[in-house]
Amino acid sequence: MHVASAEVKAEPNLVPLLDLVFQLIMFFMICVNFVSAQLNEEIKLPVAQSARAMDKAEIEVLVLNMDGKGKVYVVGQEKPLDTVGRKKFFLRQYFADAKRTAEAQGDRKGRVKTTVIIRADKDAGYADVFELMALCKDAGFRKMQLRANTVKGA
């Protein structure tokens, strides 16, 4: 076996490649952050020990954060939805948009797969939460989730 006597110096420049890969990683991480940005950290959730772990497979979700006074905060809305009329208008518009998107994606019946996630504050009144659920149903949504903490004091 013959080995060249001259020194072999193989040093590929990986730095630009690494820069590009990490920039791509950054991009995907920021995309993930957009989803979690829908959760309002100021909402203090009630405790339910039977609440199961969150299903990360849900892709199409609408997160409705309700504070203790019944105001609903949604990402993309500058002002909170504080009246029945505004809540109804927003939900109907959102459902109509989701239906159009489903139809554009090839679903002839325009079935909306969006899951409504209600994150209501533990001090909110039952009437406000029930009203929101009723409005969601009236708008056409069928899949709904309530969020709760599984651990006390969280």
Binding site: F22, M29, L39, A53, M54, D55, I117, R147, N149
Partner: peptide, 27 residues
Amino acid sequence: LAFQVLLFFIMTYHPSQLEEGQMDLLL
């Protein structure tokens, strides 16, 4: 760059989200 990524994760880490669970409703 790895440290920048680490910093990003630290900044976006919300431990309360890990304790959040769901209760399904079918209307």
